[in-house]
């Protein structure tokens, strides 16, 4: 990219949302056993932290891989607006089918952001609480495209 170096820009975002871990494929007892407190019927919430990394050529005129305003606007539209202060189960359609574990939330965010037209999405990391975090980098060839 630039004299043999690979440079990525990292950006951190936050959203707060509620979820409930419950699978229709499991019995009430199994749901309770597998998901514990996270299966409580009215759900609960987290302050999620989303860290994304993108790569691309550093434009010599701006010194930037991508203008932050463009990246922020895209993430706001694709992730923050649809997720923030929502019930993930009720208000994000994909989680009517999938259990909104943070693994699935992380993969869904990757899926929404991989179409960003101005840089290549390298990875998404989602922190559910200060004590647990999940990372997804896509399926190499399928999810990555050259910029």
């Amino acid at each position: 990219m630039s004299n043999g170096l690979h440079i990525e820009l990292g950006r951190r975002y936050k959203f707060a949302a509620s979820h409930r871990l419950h699978s229709e494929k499991l019995s009430a007892e199994e749901n309770s056993r597998v998901y514990g407190k996270c299966n409580n019927p009215h759900g609960h919430g987290h302050n999620y932290v989303v860290e994304i990394s993108v790569s691309g050529t550093v434009n010599p005129a701006t010194g930037m891989i991508v203008n932050l305003a463009d990246l922020d606007a895209f993430v706001e539209q694709e992730v923050i607006e649809p997720f923030d202060h929502r019930s993930l189960n009720e208000e994000v359609p994909v989680f009517r089918e999938q259990v909104p574990t943070t693994e699935n939330v992380c993969m869904e965010i990757f899926k929404r952001l991989k179409h960003f037209p101005l840089a290549r999405l390298e990875r998404v990391r989602v922190q559910e609480t200060g004590n647990n975090a999940f990372e997804y980098a896509g399926e190499d060839s399928a999810d990555r495209r050259a910029v």
Binding site: M1, G4, L5, H6, E8, G10, R12, S53, R123
Partner: peptide, 13 residues
């Protein structure tokens, strides 16, 4: 909330 990473090309992050 804003950072950059640098690697040698071809080295897996």
């Amino acid at each position: 909330d804003l950072f950059a990473d640098v690697y040698r090309n071809g080295v897996k992050p």
